[in-house]
Amino acid sequence: MKKQTTTCKEVMSHICDSLGEDLNSTKCTNIKQHLDSCPTCQKYFESVESTVHFYKKYDVKLDNEGHERLLSILGLNDLDE
């Protein structure tokens, strides 16, 4: 699971730091190599990604009553088409 210079904890920290960003910098080479060969870190990576996706997918819709209340408060309800 561990390589000589890069620990799982470092990789996990890096995942939280740079999720969604460019991992092609020289600085990231060791991290990428470790990630490619470590199932534990891959699982961690996936769980952080899933965390973000859970919150992305959790949307709420403003219903029509809420829309009407807003326009009424702003004095714009007569203009709604």
């Binding site: 919150y55 949307d59 819709k61 403003l62 809420g66 807003l70 326009l71 702003l74 714009l76 709604d80």
Partner: peptide, 22 residues
Amino acid sequence: SNKALAELVKRYEQTVYNFAFK
């Protein structure tokens, strides 16, 4: 123009509401 104002509100109300909920 209240019509322009209403259009701006309509354009962004869902995003503002969704962000506020989050």
